Amino acid sequence: MIKHYKPSGRYSVATIHNGVAYLCGHYASDLSKDIKGQTEEALDSIDKSLLEIGTDKSKMLSVMIHLKTMDDYAEMNSVYDNWVAKLPPARTCVVGEMFSNDCLIEVTVTAVV
């Protein structure tokens, strides 16, 4: 059975199947912030979504990070490294075009529920 958490229009905040949650991309609500601020907001949003579906970041299987530019890689990692558990999940970090020129990061997570 597939569960859709908070479906709206084009996507659901999470889709859960066979005990695995697939979260949609999370990004900062305040796009005027720098990469550190946007990373903190995106990761905080992920924490909240994971808790709402009954899990937490300690059960993450993978993280996909999209950056607007690799110039932000080190600063993003300074925030990410403090957020992620001692046993970090698999991770991919790529550069991609964002939905807004002001968006510097979008993060997607897969986690066990």
Results as ranks from 00 to 15, higher is better:
Ile2Tyr: 06
Ile2Glu: 08
Lys3Pro: 03
Lys3Arg: 13
Lys3Val: 11
Lys6Asp: 04
Pro7Tyr: 11
Ser8Phe: 09
Gly9Ser: 03
Gly9Pro: 00
Gly9Ile: 01
Arg10Lys: 12
Tyr11Ala: 13
Tyr11Gln: 10
Tyr11Gly: 07
Ser12Gly: 06
Val13Ile: 14
Val13Gln: 11
Thr15His: 08
Thr15Arg: 14
His17Pro: 03
Gly19Leu: 05
Ala21Leu: 10
Ala21Ser: 09
Leu23Glu: 10
Cys24Ile: 13
Gly25Glu: 15
His26Lys: 00
Tyr27Val: 08
Ala28Glu: 02
Ala28Leu: 01
Ser29Met: 00
Leu31Ile: 02
Ser32Asn: 00
Lys33Ser: 02
Asp34Phe: 03
Gln38Cys: 01
Glu40Ser: 12
Glu41Gln: 05
Asp44Asn: 14
Asp44Ala: 10
Ser45Leu: 00
Ile46Ala: 01
Asp47Phe: 02
Leu50Val: 06
Leu50Glu: 06
Leu51Gln: 11
Glu52Gly: 01
Ile53Trp: 08
Thr55Ile: 13
Thr55Arg: 08
Asp56Cys: 04
Lys57Gly: 06
Ser58Thr: 15
Ser58Ala: 11
Ser58Gln: 14
Lys59Pro: 05
Lys59Arg: 15
Lys59Met: 10
Lys59Trp: 09
Ser62Gln: 08
Val63Asn: 02
Val63Leu: 07
Met64Ile: 12
His66Gln: 13
Leu67Pro: 04
Leu67Phe: 05
Lys68Ser: 09
Asp71Gln: 05
Asp72Gly: 01
Asp72Tyr: 09
Ala74Pro: 00
Ala74Lys: 12
Ser78Ala: 15
Val79Asn: 05
Val79Pro: 06
Val79Phe: 12
Val79Leu: 06
Tyr80Met: 09
Trp83Pro: 01
Trp83Phe: 05
Val84Ala: 08
Val84Asp: 07
Ala85Val: 13
Lys86Asp: 08
Leu87Pro: 03
Pro89Thr: 04
Pro89Gln: 02
Ala90Tyr: 11
Thr92Pro: 02
Thr92Val: 11
Cys93Trp: 07
Val94Cys: 10
Val94Ile: 15
Met98Asn: 04
Phe99Cys: 04
Ser100Gly: 00
Asp102Gln: 04
Ile105Arg: 01
Ile105Pro: 06
Ile105Val: 15
Ile105Tyr: 07
Glu106Cys: 14
Glu106Gln: 12
Thr108Asn: 10
Thr108Lys: 09
Val109Ile: 11
Val109Gln: 07
Val112Ser: 14
Val112Phe: 15
Val113Tyr: 13
